[in-house]
Design a protein around this nucleic acid. Sequence first.
DNA 1: CCCAGTGATGTCATTGACTGACATCACCGA
DNA 2: TCGGTGATGTCAGTCAATGACATCACTGGG
Lengths: 187, 187
Amino acid sequence: MGRWEPDAAGRLREAAMALYAERGYDGTTVADIADRAGVTARTFFRHFADKREVLFNGSERLQQHMVAALAAAPADATPMEAMATAVLASAEFFDHIPREYSRDRAAVITSTPELLERELIKMASLGTALTQCLLERGVAPDVAALAAETGVAVFRVAFERWIGAPDDVPIADVIQATLKTLAGLTA
Amino acid sequence: MGRWEPDAAGRLREAAMALYAERGYDGTTVADIADRAGVTARTFFRHFADKREVLFNGSERLQQHMVAALAAAPADATPMEAMATAVLASAEFFDHIPREYSRDRAAVITSTPELLERELIKMASLGTALTQCLLERGVAPDVAALAAETGVAVFRVAFERWIGAPDDVPIADVIQATLKTLAGLTA
DNA sequence: CCCAGTGATGTCATTGACTGACATCACCGA
DNA sequence: TCGGTGATGTCAGTCAATGACATCACTGGG
């Protein structure tokens, strides 16, 4: 055993989720979170940039996963087909974490404007990354930006629908359905 | 003349824009802004919820304008046609303010993560409002959400392109072109 | 076996955003 | 003339966030 309990960041994440769900984001201080995790508030800020970031650590991995899927799409796919591949790839990400966790996390976030802001900037970052990836596939700048933003819109809408859907509905199905809705939208 | 100079909120807005552009958002304190506007920091918070909100006062009017346009769209228009009407209506809003102001404001916002977050939540709010409006037109929930989010994506992409375009290009033209790009995307 | 270096953490002080409670006082309407 | 109102000021306090510095188990070389 080391000098300190291992995985302070993980304990802080768990403590934050629990307290945000229990007392709400505003009713929770960083000191509360740190106490429950057995560290000091200063240590919290060594692991997370701010009080919001503690809930958004999976987002880089999700982004990487989707970007990788986009990059791996067939070279002859249209921009929108490639984006569809990327959005569908997000399903694998969510299959790896308990659905209940996703639901709780979404509930806390949507009920807290400050956390919602953070979530949105993650989505914007995702959009930028996907745009960049499309550009590298040779897609025209205007088309790339719009395709990426549209793809993110599909992801957001699908995720929200999935959260509210029965437990036996796989997220991949919801994404497929949302993509189909999009296709019908402009037809 | 009243006891105080009139329009404290307006002076605070101007002072904030000037200081954010000059020293950056982080390099500016609320006390700085209040000083330049000739009031105290406490008064700043009576007019604006926080240090970010002072740059986002036009956004409710923009949202109202777009919602009104959407509501006024022909009853037989498809969801996407109606959304196009709403997005195009935003042009009238920007025609009323100096382009240079829009550019400066956009420059400050895009270079400051905290302000970017606020901008994004305003866009999300716009999306929600447009979704609601589509629902009231009888559009199916799934279609409404997706159409609204897509419309917001078009607006965001078009605005960004407009900001970077020469001064003689009207925003309405850029929006038209972006809508055309979207149509080509799913074809 | 000892010792200097490393890294994760603690401690302390400070800044600045934001809030609640209360005071002030020109203005306005009865 | 007077009491009410509303925008502002003053003051004290909480909490997020950061910088500077101390601590000390662990590690690898001598």
